[in-house]
Computed example of a mutant assay.
Amino acid sequence: MAHATDDLVRDVLSRVRTIAVVGFSANPSRPSHGVARYLQSRGYRVIPVNPGLAGQEFLGEKVRGSLAEIREPVDMIDVFRRSEEVAGVTDQALALSPRPFAIWTQLGVRDDAAAGRAEGMGVKVVQDRCPAIEIPRLGLLPV
């Protein structure tokens, strides 16, 4: 599986509005917390997902224990989990109705088989990238 092109990254980040951050951390110094906060500052709605924090509130949003607990459409799943956990997260994402527009895995995180399954169902996939790096690099305006 090839790396995502700038055109794909630009398309995903300009079309999505609601992002579920899987693996969100309550610790402000952790990347998942910082990226979630950054995405909010750019106008995205961020829904934190972490079973250990379910029901608590961070960044003005209730933390969900799983993707299945989100009862509204989600445009993108941003995965802050180890590569070996991406397949399970992808399966949960593909079970959502409607399906998300995109699944995004953070720097160093890839699962080409899971990405292929998602793409086969019409979901865009960006792997091994960080939206908090790509947004300024591509000069994208706030949503």
Rank of each mutant, 00 (worst) to 15 (best):
I135D: 00
I70Y: 03
F24C: 05
N50W: 11
E61G: 01
K124N: 14
I70Q: 02
P136I: 14
L39A: 07
V16Y: 06
N50F: 14
L59A: 06
G108L: 04
L67H: 06
F58E: 00
V86W: 02
E61S: 07
R99S: 07
L96G: 14
V9L: 06
G23N: 09
L8H: 05
P73N: 06
S29F: 05
D78M: 15
R99G: 12
V49M: 02
P28L: 12
R45K: 11
M121R: 13
G88M: 07
E119S: 14
I133G: 00
S14V: 15
F24K: 03
G120T: 15
S25F: 14
S83F: 03
H33D: 02
V22G: 10
G139P: 03
G108W: 11
G120P: 08
L138G: 11
I19S: 00
V22N: 05
W104A: 09
S97D: 14
I133Y: 04
R129I: 10
E84Y: 12
N27Q: 13
Q92L: 05
E134K: 09
V74Q: 02
R110D: 02
R64Y: 01
L13C: 03
L53N: 03
H3S: 08
L67I: 06
Q92P: 01
E85N: 12
G139A: 06
V89Y: 05
Q106R: 14
E69P: 01
I77F: 15
G23S: 06
G23W: 08
R110C: 12
A102H: 12
G139C: 06
I70S: 00
P73D: 08
L141R: 15
G88F: 08
A115W: 10
I77S: 00
G122P: 04
V109D: 02
R129N: 12
S66Y: 10
V21D: 01
I103D: 13
G88D: 08
D128H: 10
P136D: 07
L13I: 12
A2K: 15
A95L: 07
S41D: 13
I103F: 11
L13A: 10
T18S: 10
D7N: 11
A114E: 10
Y44R: 05
E57G: 01
V35F: 15
A4D: 01
P131I: 07
R110V: 05
A36T: 09
A54V: 03
P131A: 02
P142Q: 07
V89A: 10
R99W: 13
G23V: 01
E61R: 12
L53S: 02
L13R: 13
V86T: 05
L138T: 07
V21R: 00
V49N: 10
A87P: 07
E84M: 13
L39Q: 04
E72Q: 15
T90N: 04
P73K: 03
V123F: 15
R117W: 07
E61L: 03
A4V: 14
M1W: 06
D11S: 12
F58K: 00
V125S: 08
I47C: 05
P136K: 10
V143S: 01
G34D: 03
R81V: 06
A87Y: 08
R30L: 11
P73S: 03
V126P: 04
L140K: 00
D6K: 08
G52L: 09
I77Q: 01
E72M: 15
L67T: 07
V12A: 08
G55Y: 08
P28T: 08
R71F: 00
W104Y: 08
W104N: 02
V143N: 09
A118F: 09
V16T: 14
S41E: 10
A114S: 14
V125C: 08
G23D: 09
